[in-house]
Write a protein that binds this DNA or RNA. Structure first.
Lengths: 191, 191
DNA sequence: TATGTTTTCGAACATATTGTTTGATAATAT
DNA sequence: ATATTATCAAACAATATGTTCGAAAACATA
C-alpha cells in the first residue's frame, strides 16, 4: 500500500477520533473532518464514500481486534483473567458468558473516550449493530433451557442487556470495573 | 384555539404519520412534510421549531395517552385485562410488571405502523427517551431485593429489556400478542 | 537516475436543505 | 364591522454534500 494512502487514512481516522470526543457524530461534518485531518475534500472521498463509511471502518477494526483470538499477548494483566475463544464450539454457561462480557468491557475501557463519544446519537446504532453482530455468534452457543422462549428472542435479550449495561456504564463515566459490571450482568440475566 | 391553527397542526402531524410509515425519519425533510401537509414553509416554523420538535410533540401525546389513568374506557376488551394505575404508590411485583408491560404493548399495537416507523434511526432515540422517562416512575416502585445491585442499574436494565423486546417485536412485524410478549419478558427478567 | 503510475490538492460546480424575513391575503373572534 | 391572528409564496443567506478537473507532488520500479 502506498505510503501516502496510509498517511491520509491515518490522518482522517485520527481526526475522527479527536472530533468524536468533542462533539456528537451528527454534528460532525465532513468539512470538519478534512479540516482537522488537513486533507483535500476529494481526497476524503477517495477513501470513504460517506461519513458512515468512515465510522463503519472504525467499528470493523475495533471489533475485529476485540474478537480476535490472539490478544492475550496484551501487556495488561487483567485481561488474562477473562480470555475467551470466539471460535470455540462449546456451549456457554453463565460463567463463560461473564468472562466474555468482561473481556469486551476491558477493551471498551481502553478506548473509553472514543467509545463514549460513539455511544451517542446516530453513531450509536452503527456501533451497536456491529456489537450485536459479533455477539450473535457467541450467544448462539448458549444452551436453550426447557422454556418456550424463541432462541432469537433470548439472544436479542442478552445482547440488548449487555448493550444497555454498556451505555449505563459509559453514561456514568466508567465508574465501576469491567469485572463488577460483568457481575451485575450475570445477576440480572436468567440463563 | 384558532380553527386554522388546529387544522394546520393536524395536517402536519398527519403528514408526518404518513411519511414515517414510508421512509425513515432522517430521510424525511421538512420540505417533504410541508409538501405532504400542503402548508407553507413559514407556517411549519410557526408551529414547530425543528423536525425533532414535531416528533417530540407526537411522542408526548402518545405517552400521555398511554400513561393516563382513564383509558379503560377504550372499546377494546383485551385492554381491561391489563389495567394499571400509573399514580399508585404500591410496590411492584413480577405480576404487576407484566400487566404494565402488556398494557403498553396493547397501545403500541394499536398504532403499529407508526410505531414501527419511529423505531428506526434517529427517531428511535427520541421515542425511547420518552418511554424510558415514563417507565422510570413505575420502575422506581420495584422493591429492591437483597442484592448489591444499584437501583439505577436495575431500572435501566428492566427498561432496556422492555425496549429491546419491543424492537424485536416490531422487527418481526408484531407477530405474537402483547400478552405473549409480556410473558416472555417476565421469564427473562429477574425481579 | 529516468519513467510511468498513483495519490493528493484546490477550486469550482450543481444540488439540496435549513431557517428567516417580507408584505399581501384570508380566516377568525368579538 | 373591525381588529387580530394565521397563512402563504417568494426570496434570502448560510451550510452541507458529492462530483469533476487538471496540475503538482510522491511514489515504485528498473
Amino acid at each position: 500500500m502506498d505510503r501516502r494512502k496510509i498517511k491520509t487514512k491515518k490522518a482522517i481516522t485520527e481526526a475522527f477520533n479527536t472530533l468524536i470526543t468533542k462533539k456528537r457524530y451528527e454534528k460532525i461534518s465532513i468539512q470538519n473532518i478534512i479540516d482537522e485531518a488537513d486533507v483535500g475534500r476529494s481526497t476524503f472521498y477517495e477513501h470513504f464514500g460517506t461519513k458512515d463509511d468512515l465510522l463503519r471502518s472504525r467499528c470493523h477494526e475495533l471489533f475485529e481486534h476485540i474478537f480476535s483470538q490472539n490478544d492475550e499477548k496484551t501487556t495488561n494483566h487483567e485481561f488474562s483473567n477473562c480470555p475467551f475463544d470466539p471460535l470455540s464450539k462449546e456451549f456457554i454457561n453463565a460463567n463463560a458468558l461473564k468472562k466474555i462480557f468482561t473481556h469486551i468491557l476491558y477493551h471498551f475501557l481502553q478506548e473509553k473516550k472514543i467509545i463514549k463519544g460513539i455511544l451517542y446519537g446516530e453513531s450509536k446504532d452503527i456501533f451497536l449493530g456491529y456489537l450485536r453482530k459479533y455477539l450473535a455468534d457467541v450467544l448462539n452457543r448458549i444452551e436453550l433451557s426447557k422454556t418456550d422462549l424463541p432462541r432469537d428472542f433470548l439472544t436479542n435479550h442478552i445482547a440488548g442487556s449487555f448493550i444497555e449495561a454498556t451505555k449505563w456504564w459509559a453514561d456514568g463515566n466508567f465508574l465501576i470495573s469491567p469485572i463488577n459490571l460483568g457481575e451485575y450482568l450475570i445477576q440480572v440475566i436468567k440463563i
